[in-house]
């Protein structure tokens, strides 16, 4: 009898732990979860004392899966849910609702000593696929092009392929870097280097961002979608969010949240 009572108490204890209204579980994209969402959470906590966050940034796929499995209230994602994920959600009675929380612009950078003034989308595709291998082929002064990309596990690696390369493969000679900092550093050191980075890194030492089809990557050109390489980033929820999830989502897209969005290098949605 005592054992039974103890089990009931433990069960009730777990249930009450799960039901705590001031704890928000967020899982998903490392792009969003590395800096942006933790800083938003800190600011939110300052306004809502007692709120706790459980943030796990292990990739967009894990964020969407967490909504489908019901193990998170918000799924961070730097990509849209795939049809297979939507289908899986429907099968489990879930409704994947996307909310755009920020834009992410991807800038093509070259060494600041490179005399080239801009590139076309076709030239960007040709450079990163290895179709052209010398700067003279795209209006430069000559020299073998050194390509720096994110590593294959990065969502940005595949997103750039889709946005800029018509899903073609990167040049075999391209060098894979762990993150934006590394790409910017390598391009900054190499006069023949070219790479792509998030908007926050275009002012890194020794590099300059290339206008593409005459449009310079900027917050404004990304917001207006006149710049070619941009993507929306999302919070996924199960249907319309409610409770703490709704409060945090509203905070994210409110001016205070969007200010943080801009501070960490993303482009605000308005």
């Amino acid at each position: 009898m005592k054992i039974k009572s103890a089990l009931i108490l433990i069960a009730v204890g777990f249930a009450s732990l799960e039901a705590r209204a001031d704890r928000l579980v967020i899982k998903g994209s490392d792009t969003l979860g590395a800096k942006l969402v933790p800083q938003l959470a800190e600011q939110f906590k300052a306004q809502h004392p007692g709120t706790t966050f459980d943030i796990a940034a292990e990739g967009s796929t894990t964020g969407i899966a967490a909504i489908i499995d019901g193990t998170a209230e918000i799924g961070m994602s730097s990509r849209r849910a795939k049809p297979a994920e939507v289908s899986a959600a429907t099968g489990k009675g879930k409704n994947l609702k996307p909310t755009i929380v920020a834009y992410d612009g991807i800038a093509v950078i070259v060494n600041s000593a490179n005399p080239i003034k801009g590139l076309t989308k076709k030239q960007v595709e040709q450079i990163f696929t290895g179709e052209v291998s010398d700067w003279s082929a795209v209006g430069g002064s000559g020299g073998k092009i050194s390509i720096y990309t994110r590593n294959t596990s990065s969502g940005t690696y595949s997103d750039f392929k889709e946005m800029a390369m018509k899903k073609r493969d990167y040049a075999g000679s391209s060098q894979k870097m762990a993150g934006n900092e590394q790409i910017a550093a390598e391009v900054g050191k190499n006069p023949n280097g070219v790479g792509y980075v998030g908007m926050a890194y275009v002012k890194a030492s020794g590099v300059k961002a290339m206008p593409v089809d005459g449009v310079t990557p900027s917050a404004q050109s990304v917001q207006q979608h006149s710049y070619a390489y941009w993507r929306p980033t999302f919070y996924y929820t199960n249907g319309e969010p409610s409770g703490l999830a709704k409060q945090f989502l509203d905070f994210t897209i409110a001016p205070a949240g969007q200010k943080i969005v801009a501070q960490v290098g993303f482009v605000p949605i308005k």
Binding site: R80, A81, V86, N95, L96, K97, P98, T99
Partner: peptide, 11 residues
Amino acid sequence: EEVRAELTKEV
């Protein structure tokens, strides 16, 4: 995005 998500769900 909402239209896109709805269409994906229906498809």
